[in-house]
Structure formats: structure tokens, C-alpha cells
Design a protein around this nucleic acid. Structure first.
Lengths: 353, 353
DNA sequence: TTGTACGCGTTATCAT
DNA sequence: ATGATAACGCGTACAA
């Protein structure tokens, strides 16, 4: 590899001058600057950022610790992260924890177990050590779904952004939580159902102890209240986020003496199960019953009928996460303002409502 | 950050001894080794790999230049890359080219244009410069679908692996192409259809000038020949990989005087279009006609009927790509053996056949 | 068995 | 305006 010395020799100047040209710090005469630039081009010189980082103690590397890149949300978030980092001239160092290969990551309960499992803790520490050995100047912890991940990370003295999850007790004094707005998204869904003319609207939630279920349930209630619609306790069910669970609960729901005319299902996977179950019972969607999902999986637009759903601001979460962690890394001071940033969801109207 | 000097002082030894303990090179007495390890633990010391790389001229960083992380295959391949790199103690540096935001990346023709477009070339060079500035010791170029990407990368003196694409004229003397086996996968699909009892089997291909279309067409022919089945020219159609194109071609196919009883569709997206078109015509799948896809999208198992398809060895491609590039980086010599590695696909039988 | 000194490719300080 | 040189954190001869 050609070094700054090669360039200096080729241009007939000192390495200091070359450095000054590269970082256009000091005053270099236009002539020599041009000569140096020519030499850089001739020799195809690319500065070694490791050496630069060693000297300046600033690496401009952002570490991304992701629980599972195979989760449907991860690629879009990483896309946002990469874009923002490229804009700001930062490198991205990734590490994948492969949660999927450890447990069924659609089930909330396993998270609690995971977090406690020594095995998982060990690989988090291991991955973190790898990242830290590169002297990353900021960390993004990317979850597989919103929940409290406090305690997973050891205390850190670099800024940390929790993306698509959150930490009540963050690992760093400079920390931020960035996710989407469950409450707003659920309202969006239910209000859309109401505007389509429904008044008997059931809800099928995810695991009862999950943050998302809780927040989306609030959104459901708020929307009903806003339109002065009654809340029927028998219309409120909880599954476990799986296709099968949606299938099963739909059976229960539509054997009620007074069944609903619409269902807000808290994720698309369960909604698929609901619709298939309805089809099995000879109930047509949306002619007889409307079904609304949440997540906007790629599959949802090809489902029959195409599923009305809520699309998550994944790219924006990534952009914002990277932007924030970079800002915190550059301003030495603590992060100010709201520690919990929720980006609004968008509504995706399709044929199922 | 604590340095090797801090550890040395804390343990009452010299930095050389600390270094020797870390890399367990030279003989260090058991006692001092233990003291040093204790100190490392006490101070939470993590070696600075930038400094190490500067000294040894080996960074153990693999660069991944991906055309689009949002492509359905990318996350699984990256998962494989991360896993292999973690196993071998390598860091992963990523850069995303965001092809998706430049053109409709499902359409083959745009690739030719992209490659020629100065804009794309510029961002490839830019991204590469970023990666090279970290002195990566190997590069993985991850495409969005198999095609020849020769000429996209400038000449490089580090090993390069093309994953999920290939280069007839690679950028480095140490290069390898790793993808899945279109020919074998297509045979798998068609043989499965034949074994289900069909003899009138149509095929809907992707763009006629694409490598994948060509190879899969060969697989189709081979399978028919092996079972001594005739090949009807009117059963051979080509689309452009899109849902709409599948929908349209199914209309043509089943208005034939003597329509087929099964269709091998070259990707799942077109297969969705085919099935929906069939439904529209009152033709039942699989009762009247069988449909077989290729790709195994997440959506395919939730489609109705669930789609029989071919699953791609994505994780394996990633593992193999990382393993190969690391091997080439470590053995100074040229890569030997086959430059084109094709990993077999698996068959995923579901209800549509 | 352990310690000293130098160099890796930069930036930054100080002369010139 | 430009150049010489000392760090940065680490590995490694070579010396002790």
C-alpha cells in the first residue's frame, strides 16, 4: 500500500504538507496543493484510517450490534444506518447475534430467558469486545422487536442508541431509544376501520405482557373513545404473534353469539391466520368481515385479499439512530432532550378492509 | 481507553510480556501470565486492533460491498458472512450501494444501464475507497441477483469473492464466484412436478437475456428429457420477474387450445401473479393446475395455496464466501480450483403442486 | 524469562 | 508556506 511518504516523495514535498492538503488545514500554496493532489491521483493513494484514528483518537466507526439480521425489520433499519453513516463519513462495523438460532424470536417470553441465559450474555460480551477493539465511537443496538433490553449491555463510555427496542436503564450516560409509535399506529389502524363504517371492532393482541401489545391496545381504546364507540370485553383477545395463534383466536371470536364485523390484528402474521381461518368458516374478507394488520410484511400485499396494514418507519429509525449516535459522539456533552423518540407509522390501505 | 502500558504497570511487568501473554507467543512463566491476565481483567483492557493492524500489516477486516441490503436474499447471506467471520476472528465492514433507490432492481436490463451509469460507478468507487481506507484484507461483493458484474470494480490487489453474482473478468487475481445452482434447482422443481404425475408442463421464465432464465430453462429441458417427456414450444414463455408479468402470461398460457396441467414459474413473485390470474379464471390450484415457484420468499408459505418452491442456500453462500475470502487472504498464493462455486438448492414441497 | 527500543502511517507542534 | 519530528498503541527483534 502506498503511504503518505510515497506521496510526499513523488510530489517533492514533506509528509506534513501532504497531510495538510488532505485535511486542508493549514495554508498550502495553490501550486504545491495541485502537485500533491496529482501525486495522490498518480499513486492511487488512500489514507489509512487506522493510523489516523490512532493519532487523533477518533475512529469515525459506528458499531452495530444486531440481534438478528434475518428479522424482517433489520435490513431496512440497517439500510438507513448505512445511508446516514455514508453521508456523515462514518464506517459501519456490524456484528450479528443470531438470536433466531437460539430461540423462537417471535415469542416474547423467550427474551426474558435469553437475557438471563449465560450463553447469550457471553456472546453479547464477546461481540461487544470485538466492536470495542475497533474503538468504535458509538454503538447502535438493534433489537428484533421493541422491548426493554436493560442490563444486556455492560456499562459503556461511548454513546449508545437502542433502535427498535429500548432501555429504561441504558448502558451509557449518553443514550437514546428510537423506535416507531405503537400507540399512534394502532390508532391509525382502528380509525381507518371505523371510517370504513364499522362499529363492532374486535382486537387480537400479541403476548399480553409485551410492550407493543400494551401500547397498541391503548391506541385501540383511544380510537374507539374518540368516536364514542363502546368497548366490548369479549372482543379483546390475546395471541402470541404467530400465524397459528391468529387462526385459533379467529375461531373463538366468530363463534361468539354477537360476532364483530371487523378485527384489528396486532401483526400481519396473525392476520394471515385470522383470514385463513375465516375462509375456512366460509366467511368472506372483506365482504363479511374486515381484517386489519400491523407491520406491512412483504407478504401482505400478495396475500388474498391484500392486507390493510400499518407500515413501520424502519428506514427512518435507522437514519435517526445513526444520526443521533454520531451527534452524541461528536458533541462531548450528554444527550439532551427526550430519551425516547417514537417515529410515526404510516397507514397502508388495501383490500382487506 | 486503557492501553497495554496500563496493564503492564498494573501487573508490574513490561509491555512485551503483556503482548506475549495476549498472543501467547513466547514462554512466559505461569505466575506472571496469571498476574497479567488478572490485570487485563481488572482494567477491562481490550487491545486496539487498529494499532495491531498498523504494526502487523494485517487487519483481519473483511469488507462487504452490497448492492442492496433490502433485497430478499441479502440478510441471509450477510448472516452467513457474519457467522463465518466471527468464527474466524474477523471484523465485518459493510457498505450498501442502495441499488433499489436507483432503479427497479427486479428488472435485469437496468443492470446494464446501472453499470454504465457514471453515477453508480462513482458510488462504487466511493464505497470502495471507504472500505480500502480501513485496509480490509478481503472483499465480498454481494449482488442482488446472479449476473456478470465484470468491470464494476477497479483492479484490486486483495482477494475478492463475488457472492450471489459473478464476474467472468474479476477485479483481482485472487477471485472466486459463489452462488446457487440454477440448473440443479430448476431440475429439482420440474422433476418434482413430473413425479406428481404431470406430463404437460409449461414454463414461465424471467427476462430472456438473464443468466438465471437461461440456466433454469436448461434445467427444465434436462428434466423433461430425463423422463422422456416432449417439449412444447407454446408452453415456453418469458416474463420480467414481476407479479404483473406472471399474471399476464398465465392468461395467455391458459387460453391455449391445449393448456398445460402444471407450470414451473421461475420466481415466486411471478408465481403469485400466475395463481391469482388462475383464480380469476376460475381455475383451481392445485386441483386443476399445479404451480411451482422458485426463491422461497417468506410470503410463499402464507400464500393460498402455499407455494411449492425452491429454496436458495443463502446462508451457505454467505458462509462459503467469507470462508473463501479469508482463506485467500491468509494463504498468500492464488486461489486454486474451480472459480465458480454453485451450491445446490433445496426443494420445498407445499400445497400448490 | 523479561525489558528496551524501534517502526507501522498518521496528525500536530514547532521551527524554519 | 513548508519541513522535521514527536507522539498514538501495538508487536517484535534483540539485549540483558
Amino acid at each position: 500500500m502506498t503511504t503518505i511518504h510515497d506521496v510526499a516523495k513523488h510530489a517533492g514535498v514533506s509528509i506534513a504538507t501532504v497531510s495538510n492538503v488532505i485535511n486542508n488545514n493549514a495554508k498550502v500554496s495553490a501550486g504545491t496543493a495541485e502537485r500533491v493532489r496529482q501525486a495522490i491521483n498518480d499513486l492511487n493513494y488512500i489514507p489509512n484510517i487506522a493510523a489516523k484514528g490512532l493519532k487523533t483518537n477518533v475512529t469515525r466507526i459506528i458499531g452495530v450490534l444486531m440481534e438478528d439480521i434475518r428479522n424482517f425489520a433489520s435490513p431496512y433499519i440497517i439500510d438507513g444506518i448505512c445511508q446516514q453513516c455514508e453521508n456523515d463519513g462514518y464506517h459501519v462495523n456490524v456484528d450479528n447475534l443470531q438470536v433466531n438460532r437460539r430461540a423462537d424470536y417471535n415469542v416474547d417470553d423467550t427474551y426474558g430467558q435469553l437475557a438471563k441465559s449465560g450463553d447469550f450474555q457471553t456472546s453479547v460480551r464477546e461481540a461487544l469486545k470485538t466492536l470495542l477493539s475497533a474503538r468504535i465511537c458509538g454503538l447502535i443496538y438493534l433489537g428484533t422487536h421493541p422491548r426493554d433490553v436493560s442490563g444486556l449491555l455492560p456499562p459503556l463510555n461511548i454513546p449508545v442508541v437502542y433502535a427498535y427496542c429500548y432501555a429504561e436503564k441504558p448502558a451509557s450516560s449518553k443514550a437514546l431509544n428510537i423506535s416507531y409509535d405503537d400507540y399512534q399506529g394502532a390508532q391509525l389502524a382502528v380509525k381507518n376501520i371505523i371510517r370504513a363504517g364499522h362499529t363492532k371492532i374486535a382486537i387480537i393482541g400479541g403476548l399480553i405482557n409485551s410492550y407493543a401489545t400494551h401500547r397498541r391496545m391503548m391506541g385501540y381504546q383511544t380510537a374507539l373513545m374518540e368516536y364514542a364507540l363502546p368497548l366490548y370485553p369479549e372482543y379483546i383477545l390475546s395471541g402470541n404473534w404467530s400465524y397459528e395463534s391468529g387462526h385459533e383466536l379467529a375461531g373463538k371470536l366468530f363463534n361468539l353469539p354477537n360476532p364483530p364485523t371487523a378485527v384489528f390484528v396486532m401483526n400481519d402474521l396473525m392476520a394471515f391466520g385470522v383470514i385463513d381461518s375465516l375462509k375456512g368458516m366460509g366467511i368472506r374478507v372483506p365482504d363479511d368481515v374486515s381484517v386489519h394488520g400491523f407491520d406491512d410484511l412483504l407478504a401482505s400485499r400478495y396475500f388474498s385479499p391484500p392486507l390493510s396494514t400499518i407500515s413501520l418507519p424502519l428506514h427512518e429509525i435507522g437514519e435517526k439512530a445513526a444520526g443521533s449516535v454520531i451527534k452524541m459522539a461528536e458533541n462531548g456533552n450528554e444527550a439532551s432532550g427526550d430519551k425516547f423518540i417514537l417515529i410515526p407509522c404510516r397507514h397502508v390501505p388495501r383490500a382487506s378492509v
